[in-house]
């Protein structure tokens, strides 16, 4: 066979939060498992492990994905951004700041996923309507807030990033 299969522990190299990163993992391990258990990036949360809660949202080559639905071996050569990699020049980004100011979190467990998803949204669409925000965030479950303050926080961050606030 022209190509050999990877088994046992595999070395994977990727860029994680801007840093060249290398790790060993088994092919079965998800990106979520590797981020949390091998790289110590526990900001990415596990809520369901089957793509239905969004707590494990990360950016993979700039695209929003559920890290529980990505095999870590697939990310060879990729750019991965987790919540730990979302930082502004002066610390918090407008999205993070507006989540705090608008009280858009209660228990805070879903918050990293929302921060990542909202960041991806505002990169793709700087002026989303309420409907578009709700549509984009529908894959991220929050059980505490009823989403009201989350939607408002995203609207506020969007306005700030557009230079309106």
């Amino acid at each position: 066979m022209a190509i050999s299969l990877m088994s046992g522990k595999v070395t994977v190299s990727a860029t994680v939060n801007g840093e060249p990163t290398e790790w060993l993992c088994e092919p079965r391990e998800t990106l979520l498992e590797v981020l949390r258990d091998r790289l110590g990036l526990t900001g990415t949360k596990e809520g369901c492990s089957n793509g239905n809660c969004g707590a494990c949202s990360v950016l993979l080559d700039g695209r929003l994905v559920n890290s529980c639905l990505v095999l870590a071996v697939e990310t060879e050569g990729a750019e991965i951004t987790t919540v730990e990699g979302i930082r502004g020049e002066k610390g918090l980004t407008p999205v993070q700041r507006s989540f705090l100011e608008e009280a858009a979190l209660q228990c805070g467990f879903c918050t990293p996923g929302f921060i990542v998803a909202a960041t991806a949204l505002l990169q793709a669409n700087p002026s989303p309507t309420e409907e578009q925000i709700r549509w984009w965030l529908a894959g991220n479950l929050c059980r505490c807030t009823g989403y009201d303050k989350i939607v408002r926080a995203v609207q506020k961050a969007a306005a700030e990033m557009r230079g309106e606030a």
Partner: peptide, 28 residues
Amino acid sequence: HAIQYAAPRTLQDALEILQEYGAKARIL
């Protein structure tokens, strides 16, 4: 139960793996 993995760059390579492993292999 361990899972093996390959990321072939050509169709030919992928088909060879399928030929060898048959139903035990799945395309991702």
